[in-house]
């Protein structure tokens, strides 16, 4: 099955990333410039993923400004910024979504 082949490749890839420098016994030195650039991988990759995932909730029926999903994500973003709490962010985002949908009938 295709999904298991992808998972196997991903499992091996994830392991190799973790093993990389450990396996080379520290013989390879990452240039400081590259290491500094690494710092930005989580911020940019995760942001790109969030935007890409949110775009699948776009609807031709409503404008982006009245899209319940976008508004819920916007509030959740504020919660994440203030609290840095994963669970609270997801919880508040879902509650806002449910409330907005209940209000719009």
């Amino acid at each position: 099955m295709k999904i298991w082949i992808i998972m196997l490749a991903l499992g091996i890839g994830t392991f190799l990333i973790r093993y990389s420098i450990i396996g080379l016994a520290g013989r390879i030195h990452i240039p400081p410039r590259v290491e500094r650039a690494f710092r930005f991988i989580p911020a940019s990759m995760l942001s790109a993923l969030v935007i890409s995932q949110l775009s699948s909730y776009a609807s031709s029926a409503t404008s982006p400004l009245t899209n319940s999903y976008y508004l819920a994500a916007f509030v959740a973003c504020g919660v994440a910024w203030k609290t840095r709490n994963t669970l609270l962010t997801v919880f508040v985002g879902m509650v806002v979504l449910w409330v907005l949908r209940a209000l719009s009938g």
Partner: peptide
Amino acid sequence: PLTFLALAVPTIKDKPSLFSALSAG
């Protein structure tokens, strides 16, 4: 998406990481 949002936001710690996130988005 909310889970990823909750993971993404705390990675923004300073100006360069903020611009990194915004430009990627």
